[in-house]
Design a protein around this nucleic acid. Structure first.
Length: 378
DNA sequence: AAGTCGGGGGA
DNA sequence: TCCCCAGACTT
């Protein structure tokens, strides 16, 4: 069990003195609104401050209160989340907003908060301490690094989290919980960095056990991460006579759950050009029941995910006669043709935005005649 | 306990 | 290219 190297009172005093001088001015700092604090905590999960800033301001502008969020439709919420990633966060937040409004306000205990969708150990502690002053250590990636170095604990992150939460608990009784938790995370985000920590500026450098041992760069050990597997998709760029593009909505769970995208099918990564087009043609016929031909290859985009190396190849699809959106697209919940002006209302992933930005996709016009039809292979 | 789930910043 | 980011949820 890791132990604090100093009295909680002294550690807290040194940290808070530094925090008052060094803290960054961020939009959610100083807000007393539990809803605004909660929104920031959810957006900041696995996401750096810099990335969140713009999303946070726009989200609170469109959903200024928890009542507004609870009353909104999920597609509008996903549209505001578009590009931020980990879309389950938006789905959970919407569900939790409904629950909070229904019960007349946030629970005021850690256990109560933990019952809300999307409230794990960290988020419950962060919202509980910052909004309600509950003395619960908020253990995020920054806090693990700071506390592990302070106490000299060298253990894998999963095990370290629980141990450090208990080791840090006395600190939360020695200072205002809101300030203390935020100060630890600020320290981890600005000075106590994963590599090359700025120990000379750190308020805890004197008591820091890792520094005393010269192990500040070795603690905590790097996280094991799974290999990225390649994944190749073929996407159809299919316009109706009015130039609207066909989009399909993915099922609510799983990768890109609930988002809209150009209808696509996964193909073997080993296939190249012609083969991918053939696979797409077969899927358009069998999976969409679409009477279309696959035409020109319009380009490709790629996107690195945590565990996947995503590559999407876009092909023009050309219909015979009047275009009609498929009623039951395989692998999707629904499909419809969407005008360019209406795209801002849809939750789109970043890779879909990249596809739409391809010159050959943007510039493609409704086709009027001859296409290079590709006969699906059996 | 291990996988899954996005996307980007910074070295 | 690699590591990580104010993690949660499923299996």
């Amino acid at each position: 069990m890791p132990r604090l190297p100093e009295t909680p009172a002294r550690l807290a005093a040194a940290l808070l003195d530094w925090y008052q001088r060094a803290k960054r001015d961020l939009p959610w700092r100083g807000s007393r609104d539990p809803y605004a604090i909660w929104v920031s905590e959810v957006m900041l999960q696995q996401t750096q401050v810099q990335t969140v800033l713009g999303y946070y301001v726009r989200f609170l502008r469109d959903f200024p209160t928890i009542e507004a969020l609870a009353a909104a439709e999920l597609p509008a919420v996903l549209a505001r989340w578009s590009g931020l990633g980990y879309y389950a966060r938006a789905r959970s937040m919407h569900a939790a907003a409904k629950a909070v409004v229904a019960r007349g306000g946030f629970p005021r205990s850690i256990e109560g908060l933990r019952e809300l969708p999307g409230f794990g150990p960290y988020t419950a502690a962060a919202v509980g301490s910052i909004a309600f002053g509950l003395p619960e250590p908020a253990i995020d990636g920054n806090a693990v690094r700071v506390y592990a170095r302070l106490t000299g604990l060298s253990a894998p992150r999963a095990a370290a989290e629980k141990l450090l939460r208990e080791a840090a608990r006395p600190l939360l009784a020695a200072a205002p919980p809101s300030e203390l938790n935020q100060a630890v995370m600020e320290l981890g985000a600005t000075l106590c960095a994963p590599a090359s920590p700025a120990c000379l500026l750190c308020p805890w450098s004197a008591p820091c056990r890792a520094r005393a041992l010269g192990l500040q760069e070795a603690i905590p050990p790097p996280r094991e991460r799974p290999a990225r597997r390649p994944m190749t998709l073929a996407a159809a760029v299919w316009r109706d006579a009015r130039g609207r593009l066909l989009f399909a909505r993915r099922p609510p769970r799983g990768l890109f759950g609930g988002l809209w995208e150009l209808p696509a099918v996964e193909v073997s990564a080993a296939r190249d050009g012609g083969d991918i087009a053939e696979a797409l043609a077969g899927w358009l016929r069998d999976g969409l029941g679409a009477r279309v031909a696959v035409g020109e290859r319009l380009g490709e985009v790629s996107q690195q995910l945590t565990h996947r190396d995503l590559r999407v190849v876009a092909f023009a699809a050309t219909g015979h006669g009047r275009a009609r959106a498929p009623a039951s697209p395989r692998g999707y919940v629904e499909a419809r043709f969407v005008a360019a002006a209406d795209l801002t209302d849809l939750g789109l992933s970043s890779v879909t935005r990249k596809l739409l930005a391809l010159p050959a996709v943007k510039g493609e016009r409704p086709s009027t005649g001859a296409v290079q039809a590709i006969v699906p292979s059996r």
